[in-house]
Nucleic acid binder design. Structure first.
Length: 413
RNA sequence: GCGGGUGUAGCUCAGUCGGUUAGAGCGCCAGAUUGUGGCUCUGGAGGUCGUGGGUUCAAUCCCCAUCAUUCGCCCCA
């Protein structure tokens, strides 16, 4: 155990749990088709610059959470901590502005060098969506609707709240940021140590501080709403109206912010109280500045990402595995016959469990353990008559069926 | 990166106020039932008590370190 531990913060996904994650990923993909989003996949590593430049030099993700290494060619490589930068890079690399609007979703592993906790691992999985080239609020509404649809379809909606905020356009945001920094600088001596650091790196974050002293200051801090210009206000109004049109409830949270500079306007999180400290299950917003920051054309963007492990914890168990038919041969001749029969049934789309060895009792036990719905027993007697003994394992009843008509009989159940 | 808890069988956990062969339930294997599963009964396998060091006549138990995990902070999905 000591030496064969997986690397810290990584986990093996055994079949049962893997099935839950597959279910989540497939649900997201299938619902995406209804909205016109198609899955795309970018590499799980990129040149470090792809993340370092776009995520900002001061963000925690860049300063302490990236898995970075030099490859044999001396290139600086980073395992992706998130997928938006990779999609944006691919958008530029492949000249995808010609396909605008680009509507894609993704699923795959992400990597962050963090201290593991429940719902926080060093290798984890995200599903996500990106809509590129749409600056209208209709895009934000569609993307949120898609996310909510997934959560509803997974049966999680009752335990989830949509929190919503606006960061305004760059002009509004810069104006507010200045006012806010001035305000907190005036009370610097009362700020917590964390928040003093945030003053430089990410002053908006102070609004969401858990420190009591900070909260008192925040209560009297200038409000973002007063610094939103007309365009930003209109955009947000249209967003909330649009969500009303499609019947999605939300809760305004003025403290909801994003650290990264390229975010603007819409900012949202789907949160739950059922997962402890890691309550954010799906989060996103608008990032009109991202593609241009990377050197591409000015391109609007909006999207979200969701943690599959966190969703899986809420979903619990996945859909039941397919119940197979157990073929149980007795004797060499039957063994041979069952091999070909198994192949025939499988090619007809029927799941077959064909034991590898053992007497009938052992094989019946295995059939039961595989949750088989029926056992098809073929021995010398049956072979001679061209029949099989078909036993319904739920009812405990059995009858003879001609081998030639097995596919039809099994298909009925 | 910071602070607290935990680490005993595949899993969930007892236990030893420091003292001979460390236990249970579930699971696994076998038998009762040599062509019939689930239920029941009987038996069996499986443990460097996370790892390394220290204290002691003696450590799974006490101390230190380390690794993993967990809760919270930072931050985030």
């Amino acid at each position: 155990m000591a030496s064969l531990q997986p690397v810290r913060g990584t986990h093996d996904l055994l079949p049962e749990e893997n099935r839950v994650q597959d279910h989540i990923a497939e649900t997201a993909r299938a619902i995406g088709e209804l909205y016109g989003y198609h899955r795309m996949t970018t590499p799980i590593f990129e040149f470090t610059d792809v993340f370092a430049r776009t995520l900002g030099d001061t963000s925690d993700v860049v300063t302490k959470e990236m898995y970075t290494f030099e490859d044999r060619g001396g290139e600086k490589i980073t395992l992706r901590p998130e997928n938006t930068a990779g999609i944006a890079r691919a958008y530029i690399s492949n000249g995808m502005q010609q396909m605008s609007p680009v509507k894609v979703c993704y699923y795959g592993p992400m990597f962050r060098y963090e201290r593991p906790q429940k719902g926080r691992q060093r290798q984890f999985h995200q599903i996500g969506v990106e809509l590129l080239g749409v600056e209208q609020v209709a895009g934000d509404i569609e993307v949120i609707a898609y996310g909510a649809h997934i959560l509803k379809s997974l049966g999680l909606w009752d335990n989830i709240t949509l929190e919503l905020n606006t960061l305004g356009d760059p002009e509004s945001r810069a104006a507010y940021r200045n006012v806010l920094v001035d305000y907190f600088k005036g009370h610097f001596d009362k700020l917590s140590e964390d928040s003093r650091n945030r003053l430089d790196k990410n002053p908006l974050r102070i609004l969401d501080s858990k420190d009591e002293g900070d909260r008192e200051l925040v209560a009297n801090a200038p409000l973002f709403a007063e610094y939103l210009n007309e365009h930003s206000q209109t955009f947000f109004k249209q967003l909330t109206d649009g969500l009303g049109d499609i019947g999605i409830n939300y809760q305004l949270n003025p403290r909801l912010v994003r650290g990264l500079d390229y975010y603007c306007h819409t900012c949202f999180e789907f949160v739950t109280s059922t997962l402890g400290a890691q309550g954010t299950v799906m989060a996103g917003g608008r990032y009109d500045g991202l593609v241009s920051t990377m050197g591409g054309p000015q391109t609007a963007g909006v999207g979200w990402a969701a943690g599959v492990e966190r969703l899986a914890m809420m979903v619990g168990t996945g859909p039941a595995a397919v119940r197979p038919v157990a073929l149980i041969p007795m004797g060499d001749a039957a063994e041979s016959r069952c091999r070909s029969l198994a192949q025939q049934l499988r090619e007809a789309g029927i799941a077959v469990e064909l034991g590898y060895a053992g007497n009938m009792k052992k094989r019946m036990k295995r059939a039961d353990k595989a949750n088989a719905k029926m056992a098809v027993i073929i021995g010398d007697d049956e072979l001679a008559k061209g029949v099989a003994m078909v036993r319904d394992l739920d009812a405990g009843e059995q009858r003879e069926v001609a081998i030639d008509s097995l596919i039809g009989v099994i298909g009925e159940r």
